[in-house]
Structure formats: structure tokens, C-alpha cells
Design a protein around this nucleic acid. Structure first.
Lengths: 337, 337
DNA sequence: ATGAAAGCGCTAACAG
DNA sequence: CTGTTAGCGCTTTCAT
């Protein structure tokens, strides 16, 4: 593998330029040279160095993706769909799993910058000063996927979390529920956390349903967190139980549902459960989960395509935020009362 | 970001060598120079180019990971644990999601080779001639994770799939089951597919239980596949039903379980279900799944550390295959009969 | 302790 | 249609 372009050129008895031309599929090369070069490449088992090429071309065809948590179904679906499109467009992905750790995120941001990626996709919302200032001074395009940009004037691809939560809550109200518990994400997380909570609040408000603080909890989007919050709610006393639980993620909804089931109660007969995301786990559990659908594959694909346009610099795009449609998946975990 | 090391040097009034030394934390630099250089770096918002550095050093601190399917819980857990260790050791990851597509795998293999990654981890078993020949002639270390190397003399980190399947089947036999259905993976997949099937066969054989071909099906490890296979088995007629189903993955087990449940049967009262992997989904469903535990995080960490040793070339390792221990997770989906 | 200069492997003018 | 050559941005001898 230590063969360089020069070795190929010598072996084929041509100039390095000709080899380079063959490598890059340019025209204006005689069949004769083409054959000899290909022959030499094969004989030497030559593999061109993307490093050297990147240095020269000042382009790496690589994109950095900052993922909050790889083991999260929703994240990995988005990532997989980003990967699929990236592959089509000829980009490679540097995956940065920050495991909800801001120090790690900052470190990775610098790393991908040093690797001179052509662009960055961030799927994480919670940021601090250092990250904000990095984003402000970064020279490559940065796109936020599934979360809203923390900085005005940046780009993002996501659903309208506020509307989605509002729609979901109104759907539950329409089913006759008035004692609606809410299992939220992190409030510092402006998109999923705050917006979804606000949607819940406003829906209740519009219907004149008074807020019950005992029915509101905040977790970290994971299953275990949903289970814990549900347990607290259930242990508050039987008279005070909600008739439905709306969780800001499917994982938390499943955790809550299992907690209810493990308490010996039934879903949805005793308590209904509604999730958010429509990730694979929503269809894997029984009763199959009623949830708010996020178009994961479209979000991933659109993110990549948008970033690609930014990289190619096709002028300033008209809209900086692209909202994709959400919809309710009516399934078996919510009943009319 | 277009500042180069030369700009920093000029700004600081020193040579590029000195800047390079500061960048690489070498000693033998005066405090005076160090201060001036750091100052200049800050003023210019300078970020060193990993590209140029890699070209010079002939090392990228990057590892390519070939993943069969990102949306698979088990895979993403392994990947996340590889990432965690990689981050500790200072490696970055190029993630290649091949979506079970051999052409894509080959393409990615060439890509990471051209990117001059320091090593490759492959989590996929099914290969063809072209891939085999790539592996044979590759100059960087290649490690197989969670699958056995298709080539003798290569390196792998995994559990003993044969023993695990044998142990699992014997456990079910010990519970009193004799009508044991098997939902396998792809037989071409030597590790998970073939070895697990062989373990099942041998366990039955050792106990003198005759084989029932109607109880054996092969799928693709995914949930939907498990559901379909189970449906076929269930529709064969009531008298012929198995008392337990052993699936070669948790996803298939969950698919099978849901099929059973959707048929109006109970798990484990009517039919028991056993999975394989102990991925997150095993604990997310009800009844909580009895399954064969694979130490996912240890597998990921060990893989990375092993590859790191190979990259650093600490002589030939004694063993080329590292087997990690498996164990049965007795939970609620299998009953004694 | 500091600097000058020679590449790392490739592409892209430019010249022929 | 083909070849010569000057960098891309950095590290690293080798001097000083």
C-alpha cells in the first residue's frame, strides 16, 4: 500500500499527471495510456491517498455528525438516513457520539474542524457559551437536525415541536381526558424540552383544564427515566392518578407503560399512554404505542441535502428553518373515556 | 479559518517550527515564544490542519468501522462502546453503515483505505470473493467484532456463538421443553447464523430430541422477520405448535412474541420465547424477555483495545480470537413445563 | 532554544 | 493529448 502515484507513473512509463488524469476519470487520455496505467495500478495494488488529495483540493468530502446518543432509536434512525443520503452524494461521515456530554461535544467540534470536514450536522440542542462561540466563528456550514438552532440565522431541519405537542395534547383532550400527565425532556433543551412542554401547557390552557403540578415531571428522554417519573406519579396516591400520560419521547413512554404494567394496572384500560417520535420501539411493544410521528428518514435525508446545498454554496437559501410535517399515529395505547 | 501555520509564525514573529512545537506541546520552548504563539493563535482563530499533519506523519488517528445496520440495537450499542473507547485512545471513527449490502461494504472498504485509516473494525460476517481479497491484501490491521473472521489467521473479538446457542437450548430442555422452535439468522452468516443453528441442533441431538423441520425457520435478525416466521409456524395447525421459540436475535424474538400475542395466545403460558443478545429491547417488552446475554460494552471496548494494540504493533498477539463470556438472562418469557 | 528547508502524495496550471 | 512543476499545510531532520 506504500505505492505512490509516482511509482505507478514509473511503472506505466508515463507522467504522474497522466496517472492523476486516469484516477480522476478525465477525458483526453489515449486508450494506450489508460491501459498501461490501469495495469500498473493493479500490479502495484495502488490506492490513492485521500489525505494528499484533500490537502491539495482543500475539500475532504467528509461531514461531521454530532449525535447526542447513538443507542437512542430515534437518533440512530436519523443517523442511518443521513448516512444513506451522504453515501449517495459521495460524503463520508465522522460520527461523534457525545453521550450528552458538553465537554465531549466541544472537543469533537474542534476535532472535526481540524479534520477540515466540509460541513457539520448537530443533532443536539443543549449548548453552552463555548459551543455557541465555536458555532459563531466556524468557517464551515453547520446545520441543526431535529433541533432548532440555538443561534438566530443558522440552519435547521426539524418538525414543529410546539405544534406537535399541542396537537398531541388536544388529541388526548378530544378523547375525553382531562387528567393528563406530562413526562418532559430537559427544559434546558429548547426544542424538545421546552417547546413540547409549552405545547402541552397551551393545549390544556385552551381547553380550560387546570394545571396539576403533580402530573408534570422532567427526565432525560430515556426509558429508565420514564419509568422513574411514572413511579413517582403512581405513588402519589390512587385518587390522584392521571387517566393518560403523554411522554416527550417513545422511550420514556415505554418506560412509563412498563411501570404501569408492573404496578398491575392495565394500558389503556386504567391509564392511557402516548409517546413522541414514532421510533421502532413504539411498534415493538404491546399494547402498540399511540405516538406522535416524526418523519425520521425524511428529516435525515433533508438535513443532508440541505447541508450539501450549503456546502456547494448555492446562494443564501430562502428559509433557514425547514419544518417537516408531524402526524399522530393512533394505535392501541390510548383509549377514549 | 484560512490561517495557516505560517500566518501564526509571522504574527508571532517566530519560525513555523516554533509554532509547530507549541502545537505539539514539545518542551524546549521558552515561555516568551510560547506566549506569543498562543496569542497569535487566538488572534487568528487558528485551527491546525489534521489533513496536512496526517500527510506528513502518515497516520490519521482514525478508525473505520463497518456496521451491518445502524438501526439495530445490538449494533448501535457495540458501536457506541467502540466510540467511547476510541475517544479515550484519541481515535476518530468513520462509520460505514452498509445496510446489509455487499457492494456498499466493498466500496466503503476502499474508501477507508484511501482515507488511510489506521485500522478497520468489521462487524459484518457475510462476505464475497472481492471482500476476501481486499482483506487479504490490506495493509492496515483489520479486526472482526462480534463475528468470526472469515479468513484464518485474522483477529476477532466475540462470544462463542455455538456454545451460547447450545447452552440456551439446553436451558430450555432443562425447563422441560421438547418442542423447541428455532428462528435462525442467515445460514450464510457463518457466525451468528450457522454456529447458533449448529448449537441448537447439537443440544437437541444430545438430549435425543428428534428434529422437527416445521419448527425451523431462517430470517434476517429483524423484528419483522421474526413475526413472519412465527406466523408461518403458528398457521401450521394447533396440534403441531412448539412450546417454546428460541430466536437467534432479540429483535426476532420480540417479533415472534408479538405475533404470538396478536394471535391471542399468552407468553409464556401458551408459548415461551427466548431471545439472543440481551439488547435494550429485551428489557423494554412485557413479558420481559429471557435471553442469551452478549456483553456488548465489553465486546466493543475489547475490540477497540485489541485493534489499538495491532496498530501500535506490539508484536504478534498470542491469541487471534478473543472470546468473551456469555450468560443466560432468566426473565419472564420462558416457563417451566 | 530556535530556524531553514526538505518533503509527505497529490492536483492543476502551464507549456508543449 | 502529455509532461513539468509549483504548491496544499504541516513535521522533522539538521544546523546554528
Amino acid at each position: 500500500m506504500s505505492a505512490r502515484i509516482k511509482d505507478v507513473a514509473e511503472r506505466a512509463g508515463v507522467s504522474v499527471t497522466s496517472v492523476s488524469r486516469v484516477l480522476n476519470g478525465e477525458k483526453y487520455i489515449s486508450q494506450h495510456i489508460l491501459d498501461k496505467v490501469n495495469q500498473a495500478i493493479k500490479e502495484l495494488n495502488y490506492s490513492p491517498s485521500q489525505i494528499a488529495r484533500s490537502l491539495k483540493k482543500q475539500k475532504t468530502d467528509t461531514i461531521g455528525v454530532i449525535v447526542p446518543d447513538l443507542t437512542n432509536y430515534f437518533c440512530s434512525t436519523i443517523l442511518s438516513s443521513i448516512e444513506e443520503s451522504a453515501s449517495e452524494y459521495g460524503y463520508n461521515l465522522i460520527v461523534c457520539n457525545i453521550a450528552e456530554n458538553l465537554d465531549k461535544e466541544l472537543k469533537y467540534l474542534h476535532t472535526v474542524q481540524e479534520m477540515r470536514v466540509d460541513g457539520i450536522i448537530i443533532m443536539h440542542q443543549k449548548v453552552d457559551e463555548r459551543i455557541l462561540s465555536f458555532i459563531e466563528s466556524a468557517s464551515m456550514p453547520i446545520l441543526f437536525s431535529c433541533v432548532r438552532s440555538p443561534l438566530p440565522g443558522r440552519y435547521s431541519v426539524l418538525i414543529n415541536d410546539y405544534r406537535a405537542a399541542l396537537d398531541a395534547t388536544e388529541y388526548l383532550i378530544g378523547l375525553g381526558h382531562r387528567r393528563i400527565a406530562f413526562l418532559g425532556g430537559d427544559l434546558e433543551d429548547i426544542t424538545s424540552g421546552h417547546s413540547r412542554y409549552q405545547g402541552y401547557l397551551d393545549a390544556l390552557n385552551k381547553s380550560g383544564i387546570p394545571l396539576n403540578p403533580d402530573f408534570i415531571r422532567f427526565g432525560n428522554y430515556k426509558q429508565e427515566s420514564g419509568r422513574l417519573m411514572m413511579q413517582e406519579i403512581l405513588e402519589q396516591g390512587e385518587g390522584e392518578r392521571p387517566t393518560v400520560v403523554f411522554a416527550a419521547s417513545d422511550d420514556m413512554a415505554v418506560g412509563a407503560m412498563n411501570c404501569i404494567l408492573d404496578f398491575g394496572l392495565r394500558v389503556p384500560e386504567d391509564i392511557s399512554v402516548m409517546g413522541f417520535d414514532d421510533s421502532l420501539i413504539a411498534s415493538a411493544v404491546r399494547p402498540i404505542l399511540t405516538t406522535m410521528h416524526q418523519p425520521a428518514r425524511e428529516l435525515g435525508r433533508t438535513s443532508l441535502e440541505y447541508l450539501h446545498n450549503l456546502i456547494e454554496d448555492r446562494g443564501q437559501p430562502e428559509c433557514r428553518d425547514i419544518y417537516l410535517p408531524h402526524r399522530i399515529m393512533e394505535r392501541a395505547s390510548c383509549r377514549r373515556i
